[in-house]
Nucleic acid binder design. Structure first.
Lengths: 220, 220
DNA sequence: GCAAAAGTGTTACGAATACACCCATGC
DNA sequence: GCATGGGTGTATTCGTAACACTTTTGC
């Protein structure tokens, strides 16, 4: 059916997924330790080949399910990495994605591990670049969307929300200004529940009005 | 060398390029009229297959040269479009790029035509989606980078600069506020030259200090 | 002189920032 | 009672937006 004047290059299409969560006030990424060459023993992003008739985003969702036990979270295409030398086995083009998962929902499969995004050294392939790019994108996304909903449980306190922002932006935010701005956006609403059990005053629990992605005018 | 448990899908990797220019105060896109099926007679984006050992961005640059006669302009990867039905001939995955070209530098090859980005109807494949996505990206890019340098000649007047912004954002801007903001960014500097020949007061010509992409704090 | 674009400041408003104290709970 | 995080308001600064008239040229 196709008729080309030049022979077409042999290229493998694959997907890598940067799975983010915020835990212990830190932005963390799910990595897997490679068993086989190349880069045996190194950490790498979970990834896999596109299957017949499968969209890249569907492949990312499949990887999330199989390698992190997670479904129904925010997933977005990040960038396509196509460096000629990125995989010594041959020409691999990776359509990288990133996903946002609430703390505790990540059930890493055998060999998977959550690692602070600030601590990455000597990853396999070009996965360091991919993660750096993803962190950048996530930061700028925070500023004009509500995607943070996908990093939090259904009900959460204002402090938890603020800690997520602080972890991603890597800087402390003023509590009163944070609440003022977030209130003015009207994205969340209080529930009738409070936390209990801490050695301190109980906190009101909030929930997002919308669990769909929204674009905001301006933000942080 | 590769050893897979599942047969890998047959996928063609290609590149489409959204080539933008601003002409007559309008944002325009270079389209080519298709000679062959599918979509014979429809307008489509210039594009082509990745060649052996060629990066997607290099392919985009090659297409810019061959189809628009343009070199040395701003090019950026946009998004990877991988819909299963986007090409009736088979599974084509397109790593779409966009490029910014100064007015008058586009020398469309045979069959190429600059078309206002607001006027697009019934394009081939999913090229309508690609262009809409590119326009969105370009708008948001204007707000926090200086990429506009790549849409202007080396020397230009403040009015020309403003018209580029207005064309892309599709809204009029206040002349004094525009100059004030742009001056505060210190991206451009006056030359010693002025325009001549118009039936009006001559305008100072400016140039960009830097023809490298820069990130800005905030902008429009 | 008239048409056409160039050039130039001030005021008002709203958003962002900086900042400190009392409250409710568990132990 | 003390340690811990929860909860709340005001004043200042800065950036954004609104707004109109004079200048220089070609014809």
């Amino acid at each position: 059916m196709l008729n080309f004047s030049h022979p077409l290059p042999r290229i493998q299409l694959m997907v890598d997924v940067v799975i983010f969560t915020v835990r212990n006030s830190q932005l963390e990424v799910l990595l897997v330790r490679r068993q086989k060459e190349p880069f045996a023993g190194s950490y790498a992003l979970p990834g896999g080949y596109l299957q017949e008739g499968e969209l890249a985003e569907q492949a990312a969702i499949r990887i999330l399910r199989d390698k992190a036990g997670v479904t129904n979270v925010y997933v977005e295409q990040l960038y396509t990495f196509d460096g000629l030398q990125r995989d010594p086995r041959g020409r691999m083009v990776s359509v990288a994605h990133f996903a946002l998962v609430p703390e505790g929902k990540v059930l890493a499969a055998e060999g998977g591990e959550l690692v602070p995004a600030s601590n990455l050294l000597k990853l396999a392939f070009d996965h360091q670049d991919i993660i750096e790019y993803a962190v950048q994108r996530l930061r700028s996304k925070l500023e004009y969307t509500n995607v943070v909903y996908s990093l939090l449980p259904t009900k959460f306190t204002y402090s938890e929300l603020q800690r997520v922002y602080e972890a991603i932006l890597s800087r402390p935010l003023d509590k009163r200004n944070f609440q003022k701005k977030f209130n003015s956006l009207a994205l969340i609403e209080p529930t009738s529940e409070k936390t209990s059990g801490g050695q301190h005053r109980p906190a009101l629990l909030y929930k997002f009005k919308n669990n769909q992605r929204e674009e905001l005018k301006k933000f942080f």
